[in-house]
Structure formats: C-alpha cells, structure tokens
Amino acid sequence: MKAGIVSYGAYVPRYRITPAEIGRVWGSDGESMGEGLNVRRKSVPAPDEDTITISTEALRIALVRGAIDPQQVGAVYVGSESHPYAVKPTATVVAQAVGATPFLTAADFEFACKAGTAAIQTCLGLVGAEMIRYGVAIGTDTSQGAPGDALEYSASAGGAAFVIGQERVICQVRRTLSYTTDTPDFWRREGQKYPSHSGRFTGEPAYFRHVTECARRMMETEGTTPADYAHVVFHQPNGKFPQRVGKQLGFSDAQMRYGLVTPDIGNTYSAAALIGLANVLDRAAPHERILVVGYGSGAGSDAFDLETTDEIASFDRSHGRPVQWYLDSGTEIPYAVYAKFRGKIHMGEH
C-alpha cells in the first residue's frame, strides 16, 4: 500500500480520578475494582472540553509535527460515540479550527470504539486513489458510564489524530482488514445519556472473538507470526482484556507494553487503540513492525499491519507532548468535582 501515516498527535485532558475514589462514593471496593480492570486512574475532561476541542488539539499537534499545510488536507473524519451535536458535524468545527476549510470533504464516523480506525481505512482509500493529498482520521471520546455502573470505573476522555498521505510516510500500512458481525454487546439509543451493555456478553462473543479472528486472519494473509511484530496494540476497554487476548494470540508482555495505555488514563473508547499506537510511534525506530487491532461494539474489528520507515528517525516529535507525559501526569480530583465537571449534578433550569 502506498499510503501510510505521515504524522500523528495525541491529547488527553488533564484531570484524573481513581477507581478507589469512585468506589468510595458508591460503597463498593473501588480499589479491587480497579485492580480487576487493571485501571489505576482515568482521565476526566474539564467542563470546557468535548470531542471537538480534544480532536482539534490532537490534530493541531499532528499538523505542526508533520509540517503539513492545512490547506492540503482533503478530508477530515472524526470517529466518536460522543459527538457534541446529534446533528451538526464535529468534523466541520475541527477542520475550520485547524485552517483546513473550505475545499475538503468532512464527516463524522460512528462505530462504537472503532470509528477512528474506520476513518483511517477511509483515508487510506482516498489517498491511495489519489483523490486527496492528505486525509485526517481522528478518534476521540469523552464517554460516560452511568453513575455506579461498572463502566464508570473506566470510561474516560482522550483523542488521537493521524494524517494519512503518500509523502514522507513515517509508518507504512502494509495491509488493513476487518471482521464485522451484528453482535448486540453494547449500545446507546438516541437520546439516552448513558450506554447499555449486556454484561458478560461483552467479553467472549464480542471483544475476544472479533479481535482474535481479525488478528489471526491478518497474520494468515501476511504470512506472519506474533514473533514478526515488535509491538502489538489492541483496543483496550480496560487493562485486562488486551493482555488476555494478547496472551491467547501468543504475544509477550514486552510486545504489548507500549501499546497499553488504559491502565493510566482509562478507556478512551474511539481513541484507545490510537493513543496506544501513538505511544508506540513516540518510541519506534525505523523498520519496526506493528500490529494494531481495534474493536468496536456492535461489532467489528479493524486490523492494521504497519511498519515504520526510515523517515521516522528524523520525525520531529518536539511539538505537543509525548503520550508518556499524559500517562505520568495529571491532577487528581475527588468524585464531587468529577460529578460537577461531567454534568452529573442537576443544576436546575436556566
């Protein structure tokens, strides 16, 4: 494939809350809940942050790092399940805010947690067909679990933007393929504030089956084994699922190490696998092979067989912050402040 990753940027809001603090409020053992999920902290967006602002921050970093003229961007696609408007695209605001308007195509993607990887596939097609010079794919979420629900311990906020092009490619896309079925594991009906999920059903027939089938088909098609990859990145709704699926597929902890970011920032949904990939690219040297397998409920998996190029050695990452910085830093807040920030407190009508 000629098209590949030209630049990338990630952004995670500053605030953090611990599972212990969430459990304290609901009278449950949050600490062991966190240990069970392998989530130490999750990120919390400030009251003035949403999917549009997080996407814009991530994309601005990517454009500066790649020294890309925004006017050369021919497509902006934002994948999310927390678009601020039900009708009115996130992508138009983001495109305008980075100076990419008006001659471009833009749209919002929705496929639970894999909308961002679906956007990357679309950009690869458009760039590969030479319909556009650069395509931008963003995965961002500010998702919420219902108060007291198991999801509340992990649902967080973050975003990552990837610029797809054919010039100065830092990470080549050798192949992408997907595995998609109609599986009702997790959903949110129009107008509902919080999602619903079918409990244990979200595991085996949903996440594990789709990720495993998709990863296996990729390795069969490419004639590879886990040993061929320097890094592997899975969708990570918590810190446990990706570790388990990685073990089942035959990957080591060392291969999974940098792709796993959920333990420190929580589940960023559409951004989860993409921030994991950004963390890998922050450290990768030329000619390292990377397997990425996203997952979105409903359900589907997108796999990418990637390989870094010589260009990554001279790629300027100095603008913006490395993912590791977001994993290490943050301001912890108590549940009351979290509830205020996330609109969980009824403020009356005004």
Binding site: A227, D228, A230, F251, S252, H287, E288, R317, Q324
Partner: peptide
C-alpha cells in the same frame, strides 16, 4: 517525564524483520 526509555526489542521473540 521525558519520552521514557527507548523500546527494547522483545527479548524472547526477536522480530524476524
């Protein structure tokens, strides 16, 4: 914290490439 340590090649599974 800076970028962190460079990625060590996975010792038990050296990538073929």
């Amino acid at each position: 914290s800076a970028r962190g340590p460079p990625v060590p090649a996975p010792a038990e599974n050296p990538p073929r490439d």
